[in-house]
Simulated assay, not measured.
Amino acid sequence: MTSNSDSDASNAAKDFFAALPHAAALGIVPEKIAGGHAAMSMPWAERLVGDPASGVVHGGAVSALMDTCCGAAAMSHGQAGGGAATLGLRIDYMRPATPGQTIRAEATCHHVTRTVAFVRAVAVDDDAGRPVATATGTFTVAAP
């Protein structure tokens, strides 16, 4: 069962995401933002390629996808209120994303204090068994 605070937080996160110009520029698509969880995808596009010889998406685009997904997960947690700002984000790149494939990120907010949300995320391409990257992050949040 979803509480009103979870629903309100999810709606605020969706509204916040819709206003992010970098997400639109990168082609990031929100798949789910609710209850402390977020899933987003970023289709492969030539403009995102960091190495023209291989066609691999630039790590900065992957980083932006993961940061955005983590922030949305933090904002949609029922114990968090208002916006979210990244305090710290550690991204471990496991391998290059396969050229031509969509990159998908999923994030979960696993703990919220009065002012900080703690989030974990993973990014994959079509080979979901081999992550492209993993992330852990902390985000400022306001009391609901």
Rank of each mutant, 00 (worst) to 15 (best):
G100H: 03
A24P: 07
R114N: 15
R47F: 03
L26A: 11
T108P: 05
H110K: 05
A23L: 13
V116H: 07
S5P: 12
A135K: 08
G71I: 00
G137W: 15
G71T: 02
A142T: 02
V57N: 01
R114T: 06
A61T: 07
A143N: 08
M42K: 02
S63K: 02
M42D: 02
L48H: 01
L20I: 09
A39S: 06
G88E: 11
T86R: 13
T136S: 11
G78C: 09
A34E: 03
T98E: 12
G82S: 09
L48V: 01
A25W: 10
A133M: 08
D15H: 13
A143Y: 07
T2H: 10
V29F: 04
A25D: 12
R120M: 05
G129A: 07
A13K: 01
Y93Q: 13
A9T: 03
D67W: 15
V141C: 12
T68H: 15
Q101N: 08
M94L: 14
T102Q: 03
S41D: 03
R47C: 03
V116S: 05
A64Q: 12
A25H: 13
A39W: 01
P131Y: 12
R130F: 07
V119H: 12
P99T: 10
I103N: 00
A105T: 00
G82E: 06
S54W: 08
Y93P: 15
A74E: 03
I33G: 09
T138S: 14
F139S: 02
D8A: 11
C70N: 15
T86P: 15
P21S: 11
T134D: 03
V56I: 08
S7D: 15
D126N: 07
L20T: 03
T140N: 14
D67H: 14
R104N: 01
F139I: 01
L89F: 13
F16Y: 13
G36V: 04
D51R: 07
A121R: 05
A107G: 04
A97I: 04
V29G: 02
D127A: 13
D8T: 07
L26Y: 11
G129M: 04
P43R: 10
R90V: 10
I33P: 09
A18D: 10
R114V: 07
A97F: 05
A39M: 07
A39N: 06
T113I: 09
G36W: 08
V141Q: 13
H37W: 07
T136L: 09
F16H: 14
Q101Y: 06
L20F: 08
M66C: 02
K32I: 09
I103V: 14
A61W: 12
L48T: 00
G82A: 07
A107D: 01
A121T: 08
W44Q: 05
G71A: 15
N11Y: 04
A74T: 03
H37N: 11
G55Q: 08
V56W: 04
D125Y: 03
